[in-house]
Write a protein that binds this DNA or RNA. Structure first.
Lengths: 219, 219
DNA sequence: CCAGTTACGAGATAGTGTGTATCATAACTG
DNA sequence: CAGTTATGATACACACTATCTCGTAACTGG
């Protein structure tokens, strides 16, 4: 058995990943063909398919390497519960590898890629959080935190002239991290009828609409 | 000039939209070809392109009709500031047209489609909100609210057996609507250094990491 | 109801990208 | 150094897109 991968394989894979990063910096993802990747990386077209099933698989690999690299750096901050520091670190990392992140987060990356990044980040955060998962809603909160951050980053990457890095980090911390951290210090409202009723009393108690009327399309 | 559209046009477009809804219920979006849409709708292949530039354009039209229909229904609740009612209405509407929403929100709908739905919802919410936009950050908050809700819905549509409609509505209200509504009653933290400093003092004041170290890919 | 306009169906066609197969050659590993 | 394995080059079948043409059917405005 060979524990060590063939040197040619690691070289080829790295060349393909680098070509993907380069191309993603100069055109939208949907305009990048396998042929172009092969040409740019000086790798044979047929060889591409010996390593990746399709373009998306390569992009997912690129995202995996990047995410792993970042999570390794931010891990100590997560353990220290330094939310603002973690947010700053995130924004700095994204800015340091701007073009590829614009493609991955703000560009039209396929569902496979996004799902992979999300899952990876969720697993890491889940492993670093204090309390064990206490219900089905905990997964949802975790999902909400990670994907909301990705959304804010997507907005930032499209409007980067408006907001600088540190401000963006603070926004992330104030609109996502701290509010959801506060949720844990409160009873899980959705499953507590008394709490929910108390909340409702605070708002304008509008008449509950019966339901939806006309369905536009048959289902 | 003809103010009224040709009857054949509305019939053809409706047939194409309905075919898209049907097909989206039985296979992933990327597996739906223009040929299949033409066949299912009993519309000629060439005729498809007389109405839509591509598959995405048709899907965007479908999303537009649905979103418009829903926003019309939820408008009174928005005016009454009934956040929980609006969230309930949203979940009910999504559930009433489940398959197409699974494709549009949780499935791999292209960037064009998602952007269209987002823009449409943002415009409506912006029109119905109390205060006029007071800064560049207001757009970001608006974006955050709408896209975070879409994210939560995407999660729900993939784990619908876990959480019922009313619970989901409450989650949306508690994790997105109310927290962001509360933000408006506080000074906009990110641009207020004093407030930010006060916040930081509350958290564990971790040493500020200098910056990111090794770049994996050249940029 | 009719004449002019317009949409539609059917079929052909060019172009592009994907994914697989084959075989000789070069490079790596142990 | 010998055996194994990755790679390069090329060819090919296939699917889908997007456009064009022409004859026919349907609709609109008067």
């Amino acid at each position: 058995m060979s524990m060590t991968a063939d040197a040619r394989v690691v070289r080829t894979r790295e060349a393909l990943r680098q070509a993907m990063v380069d191309l993603a910096a100069e055109r939208p993802l949907e305009a990048i063909t396998v042929r172009a990747i092969a040409e740019r990386s000086s790798v044979s077209y047929a060889t591409f398919f010996r390593h990746y099933a399709d373009k998306e698989a390569l992009l997912a690999d690129v995202a995996d390497v990047l995410t792993r690299d970042f999570l390794r750096q931010v891990a100590p901050l997560l353990r220290q519960r330094d939310r603002l520091g973690a947010a700053r670190s995130l924004c700095a990392y994204v800015e340091a590898h701007l073009p590829i992140h614009q493609a991955l987060i703000a560009g039209g990356a396929g569902e496979t890629v996004r799902a992979g990044m999300l899952r990876q980040a969720m697993e890491t955060v889940a492993g670093a959080r204090p309390t064990a998962p206490e219900g089905p809603l905990d997964d949802l909160v975790l999902f909400h935190v990670v994907s909301a951050i990705l959304n804010l980053l997507a907005w930032w990457l499209r409007n980067r002239e408006t907001v600088d890095r540190d401000t963006m980090a603070e926004i992330i911390e104030r609109t996502v991290l701290t509010p959801t951290a506060a949720l844990k210090r409160q009873p899980p409202a959705a499953l507590d009828p008394a709490q929910a009723a108390a909340d409702r009393a605070g708002a304008i108690d509008a008449p509950r609409r019966p339901n939806i009327a006309a369905a536009t399309y048959r289902s």
